[in-house]
Design a protein around this nucleic acid. Structure first.
Lengths: 209, 209
DNA sequence: CAATAATATGACCGACCGGTCGGTTAGTTC
DNA sequence: GAACTAACCGACCGGTCGGTCATATTATTG
């Protein structure tokens, strides 16, 4: 039998973090105000301090929550694809779909947080560095696998490829909201496709367009 | 004969905007606090309101100042290169050099501001949209010229190319500060080079590496 | 039932925010 | 030197920030 009090706390915590990720995707992780966060929830500001000792701890918890969400909605589904270049491309498409579906009102939690904290110091910056490195390592591993199993030309540099794929996804975020919403994701998908196709050993592994 | 009072005001305005661009590149354009800005200058907070009616007007003036700086230090020098793919690549290299030289402590004013305001509303967001569109249009025009004069294969999509070049520059900003400072610019340069080289009609137009 | 423990609350704190105001200083004009 | 003007300053305003605390509510346990 579960303790109803603990269950209630767990539920509150999840609700708060859900809202925090959404709010931070718009206002930024630093611009996230505890009063505003509490106000748009059936929760008082003091209750936030009952669960997290400080704003910084809540920010760190929000990062973990967003990381889990990204893993569940972007990475995991894409990993169902066959190993190699198809899986790498599937991760990029999955990322774009996550943005296009409007899961978060601000588009992307991590891209926003990265550019907000890249020039600051502290625990939030440090944790974001780790998560970024983890994400890039994942892309590099996927690119490396695609080369290793012979999907891509053997002189392909996996790190360079991972950089370019990540860059195309990152740029799509601001482009979709500031320049041309209708073309941003098409351009991003097309850019990665043009990048990968010349490297393919078997051109049928990826779509033409 | 110039009026010494007006000259003094002009000097103050320039000093404030210089500091504002630098500060905003670290703290963000919204996180820019007028008290802090005044404090690190020989200027009082009230003096700021003597020159700009509100924080938003100062933010807009800061955008214009950063835009001029970007034009002077990034675009203009690169435009000295011969028209075509060399000029396009020179703009990318010039951008990376601007970052690597540490002209702004936060790396890039515009990349930060874009990801800060892409999901918000108001005059600042609107102006940033215009500046972004202007920058992308410039890249697209350069890519179009490179195709038109025969530097690049004629079936090259200039807009797609411009997207990828911009993306590589944008990604270098956060990567240099959060993941691997020593490799970020090399990767960014390499990514654009690998992108352009297969499209060249004359391989000697760009360096090997 | 009472004792206990986890969760949640509202009133409150000092610090800082953007912004206003009356008054002072520096430079020009006559 | 008097009159004028642009630039600048310190004190202050209402409001919001992150954070504290004594108290109340809710659910489990003996």
């Amino acid at each position: 039998m579960v303790d109803g009090r603990l269950a209630r706390g767990e539920r509150t915590r999840a609700n708060v973090l859900d809202a925090a990720v959404r709010l931070a995707s718009v206002e930024g992780l630093g611009g996230l105000s505890l009063s505003q966060l509490a106000q748009r929830l059936p929760v008082s500001k003091s209750a936030l301090f009952a669960h997290w000792a400080s704003k910084e701890e809540l920010q760190l918890a929000t990062i973990e929550h967003a990381r889990e969400q990204f893993g569940d909605l972007v990475l995991r589904p894409a990993l169902a694809n066959p190993r190699g270049v198809r899986r790498l491309f599937a991760v990029h498409e999955s990322r774009l779909r996550f943005y296009a579906d409007g899961v978060l009102p601000g588009g992307c939690f991590f891209v926003g947080a990265q550019y907000e904290y890249d020039a600051r110091e502290g625990a939030v910056h440090d944790r974001l560095c780790e998560v970024s490195a983890e994400w890039l390592t994942t892309l590099e591993r996927l690119a490396g696998e695609a080369v290793a199993i012979g999907d891509l030309a053997e002189d392909t540099d996996p790190d360079l490829l991972a950089f370019a794929v990540d860059a195309a996804g990152t740029a799509a975020v601001y482009r979709a909201r500031m320049v041309d919403p209708e073309r941003a994701y098409t351009l991003s998908r097309g850019a990665v496709l043009r990048l990968l196709r010349p490297l393919l050993t078997d051109p049928t592994l990826l779509p033409e367009e």
